[in-house]
Amino acid sequence: MRNIVISAASWVYATLVFGFIFLPVAVLVLFSFQDGRLPVPPFNGFSTQWYAAIFADRKLMAALGNSFVVALLSSAIACVLGFLAAYALARHKLPGSALQRGLLIAPMTVSYLIIALGLLTVLNTFGIPLSLWTVGIGHVVINLPLCFAIIYSSMGDHHINIERAARDLGAGDLKVMVLVTAPMLMPSILAAFFLSVTFSWDEFIIAFLLSRFDVTLPVEIWSLLRSGLNPKTNAIGSLVFLVSVAVLMLLEFTLFRKTGKS
């Protein structure tokens, strides 16, 4: 009897919270197909005109491409730097290693706004023009701690002898890393990489403050918001959402399913 009450309460609670979680997204997607100028009730009918509009919007499509390049490139750099640092600090006794670890993860505890502002003041002072490059630099700063922490925490001591064996058989440090360490840690390296891509892809404030003419998608969407409630914003938001979910599902059912089992 008591169990039934708990079960029922659980279901009701879960349904309510899931409802809360999904409400705005459902509204967003639904009204991206609105046949009319306002993405709010009543729903006038189904139309894909707003999707046509965003694909025709050159600036939006350019921003989409920019976001993609910045996310991939900055995540790759963050992963490589994080991996090298994790290898050095997990495998060698360096003086001040606790301090180094602290320094490397420090940006994680600082708001993106402050990181952006700091970079902005320095760039202004040295007269370095803002561009997608400066956005990328900022994104590496925020993703490096993440990549380092994830990869560092997956470097177990049980890997030490395997790396020693590789060195013993004639591999130099680089070959050990490329042929032995990286393949062994591939699940966590990929996790770090995809998480970085997600963060960079979605990041607004750094991209907003450190870019000028070429902007990333969140910044372009931000400027769309000035037109208030607009089905075009619904359309681009829904598109990003649906594509992300598709990619996520693809990864879930191929990559992570496989690595999770071995």
């Binding site: 997204v25 009204f31 969140p218 969407i221 938001g237």
Partner: peptide, 16 residues
């Protein structure tokens, strides 16, 4: 799942 909407869009969708 709604994580995968863009951060800016998520706030906007609450406006809706």
């Amino acid at each position: 799942l709604p994580f995968w909407t863009s951060y800016v869009v998520r706030s906007y969708s609450w406006l809706l």
